[in-house]
Design a protein around this nucleic acid. Structure first.
Lengths: 253, 253
DNA sequence: ACATGAATATTGGAT
DNA sequence: ATCCAATTTTCATGT
């Protein structure tokens, strides 16, 4: 799994190592070093000399990690070209891409370690509790929102975006349902408001708006009241009912 | 900078290593290993056995990287508690936090390498081209939006959010300006529309709405027309004018 | 290629 | 602690 490693490589040694293993395109390379980092593209940034962990993956993505936080200090999602060289006695890597046009340049001022790994393509990954899943579950069990609710459409397109769930209640009124997998805020309320307005413009039927989420912020709840809309508490991670043959994450094997 | 390293550690050796260096709280620890990863909290996920690079930083943040993409497969922004142990002959790390309550559990099935680094807190970092910077520049030079425009407020709070720039034009009309540092989409148009509506409700003055961005999507431009709002092309990375003593990123030292 | 919208978004700032 | 809005958001998806 570990292909190669050098401790405290000289600049030309580091450059050669990077060149060799990045060119292969089938491994992950990382460098621990004091670095200077320049970025220019959608924005521009400079990171003065400091210790960083630099990771270059097979897809050419580059990330420069500092001592804290999940998010890298500098990064590039995917690069079209990688250049490695020695400038003024310092190993330098430049990662470029074209769309959008941007560039990250890392100068390895004092490399402590460089390594190349082979990470085999990994296996299955399953995520539970996405909004898409929540939408499927509620389309199947609309009574979790309101007894007697009948779902007419999912992702119904309007001129201002797609309506998550479009339904009819037992009184015959149309119901626009906006889903959020986590606590809903004012943005979600306005989104719902837009959809309701849009549907009302189309016809003369009575139209209700329901925000379905596990929770709602106080200002958002206020706003709902002002706009004559409703909130319904719905969990994003529903207990799977016996009728469904869905595997449970924590079910015993 | 490199504190310690073990190749192909046995489970108890890996657990001891992790325990020792994670407890210190002043270093970055990483493991290259075949892993199984469980996450449970805001959502839930399972990653089946595969090769991953696991990074634990000083702040307790955990990230599990696969062979591609900047974004980790699993992660945790900050953990309150880290537990390390050996279960069924396999080294296991569990990272928990309380707000929100969530947990990541990594089982190191076949560890190839574990390392501990000391990354000193890094120095200066400067980002140019943020929306905040754009806002300052345009507040100072509103003529870049429209000749004769007079800025009354920045970040003016309304009941539906903060207005980026609030101004008056040469005809005496109020102007709501929404800024985007990159190409503006329908979402931005709706945001602007909300602010304009809110201001109109407050008084009887004529109110214009301007979306200022380096570019705009075709549907968004359409929407602007429908709502009677305007678009103005403004760069997020303005050429610094001679009057400003702002340092240029690429100026020679 | 472009536009849209979700995300375990993360992160920083204001209240 | 809560809430809001920016982000070099990234990323997957649909058109």
């Amino acid at each position: 799994m570990i292909l190669a490693q050098r401790a405290q490589p000289a600049p030309d040694e580091l450059a050669a190592f990077l060149d060799e293993y990045l060119r292969r395109g089938d491994c992950l390379v990382q460098v621990v070093s004091e670095c200077e980092v320049l970025y220019s593209g959608r924005a521009a940034s400079v990171a003065e000399a400091g210790d960083y962990l630099v990771i270059v993956k097979q897809d050419g993505s580059v990330q420069v990690h500092g001592h804290r936080s999940v998010k890298p200090v500098n990064w590039q999602p995917h690069t079209d070209d990688l250049f490695v060289g020695v400038e003024d006695g310092v190993a330098v890597m430049r990662a470029e891409r074209f769309n959008p046009e941007e560039m990250v340049r890392v100068a390895f001022l004092a490399p402590a370690m460089v390594q190349a790994f082979e990470l085999r393509e990994s296996g299955g990954f399953a995520l539970m509790g996405s909004e898409a899943e929540m939408q499927r579950a509620l389309a199947r069990h609309p009574e979790l929102i309101e007894p007697g609710l009948e779902v007419l459409h999912r992702e119904l397109p309007t001129d201002v975006g797609g309506i998550d769930l479009f339904a009819r209640d037992t009184d015959g009124a149309l119901v626009v349902v906006e889903l959020k997998r986590s606590k809903a805020n004012q943005e979600a309320v306005h989104q719902l408001g837009r959809y309701v307005e849009s549907v009302r413009r189309l016809g003369s039927e009575r139209v209700r708006g329901i925000l379905a989420a596990p929770a709602v912020t106080a200002p958002a709840l206020n706003q709902l009241g002002t706009l004559g809309l409703e909130f319904r508490e719905v969990s994003a991670l529903p207990l799977d009912d016996a009728g469904d043959a869905q595997p449970s994450l924590f079910a015993p094997a």
